[in-house]
Write a protein that binds this DNA or RNA. Structure first.
Lengths: 141, 141
DNA sequence: CTTTAATTGATAATAGTTATTTATTAGACG
DNA sequence: CGTCTAATAAATAACTATTATCAATTAAAG
């Protein structure tokens, strides 16, 4: 039994082909896909899969913290199975999202939030908006 | 003529009572209101104001950078006229949003993004999700 | 194998946002 | 100050991402 199936079982989620496919895809990509993207990507191998199933599955995976759901000011959410602490860089031109594993002292900030304000942090987003290197160079169109 | 009206003029936006009211309200609060909240707050003084006007106005103000639009994983956007660099703390229990003006070395990160990846940052969000002090103490309900 | 509760697929419903259209108005110009 | 015109507002229809519903299917426990 693979790791993904074990994670599902550990969270009392039934191991279905649909869930394995969605979770597996998210674990294999760093494209931060939307529900639409996930659906289109899996349509070929799972032609019967419903869009509603994708929505329900990402909600389940998010609820048991197997994936992260986030919004970068677009009209839809994005999903990410990468649990390492990292920032997201959204290129406002090509709409790709890049990861940044930087030297940002987040533990220090989380500690300050707790001691100074009594705020108990359980998750965080760090999002940068701008123009990526490719788009800066490719000024054609 | 007040500062708000001057800002509107500087961006070639007509100075209308609706825009002044919405912009003025955003400049006066630190509650990070949603469109719904803005609409309800102004309904008393401007009973004829349409919800569509609020949507169009915040879009205009956002487009000329007089306010910021952001999303904290809720089902609607929030707006903020505070242009100082700061983080947002969303209490996932009472759904209030607090500001944090911390010692986060963002200039350093922005510089690294540019030199290491060629990413030109034009805006950023730093969002912390957790439980605020009030909610931690008020465990009643 | 049987049973049962969870899940899927199809689709209707919901909610936030945007588009459309007509009436109104800010502000330029004389 | 009155006239004119393009921009804006109000009302509401349309759109789209997401959620809810429900009958059919299936994972998995016994």
């Amino acid at each position: 039994m693979n790791k993904l199936a074990e994670n599902l079982k550990a969270n009392r989620l039934k191991v279905t082909p649909q869930r394995l496919a969605i979770y597996s895809y998210l674990a294999s990509t760093n494209e931060h896909p939307t529900v639409e993207t996930i659906y289109n990507h899996l349509k070929e191998d799972y032609p019967a899969m419903s869009l509603a199933t994708v929505y329900k599955t990402v909600a389940s995976l998010r609820d048991c913290h197997l994936i992260r759901e986030f919004n970068l000011g677009e009209d839809c959410n994005r999903y990410d199975a990468n649990s390492d602490v990292h920032a997201h860089l959204l290129c406002t031109k090509c709409h790709r999202v890049f990861d940044y594993y930087g030297d940002i002292d987040l533990k220090h900030v989380i500690y300050r939030l707790k001691t100074d304000f009594g705020f108990e942090t359980s998750a965080l987003d760090m999002n940068f908006y701008g123009i990526c290197d490719d788009c800066k160079n490719n000024n054609d169109k």
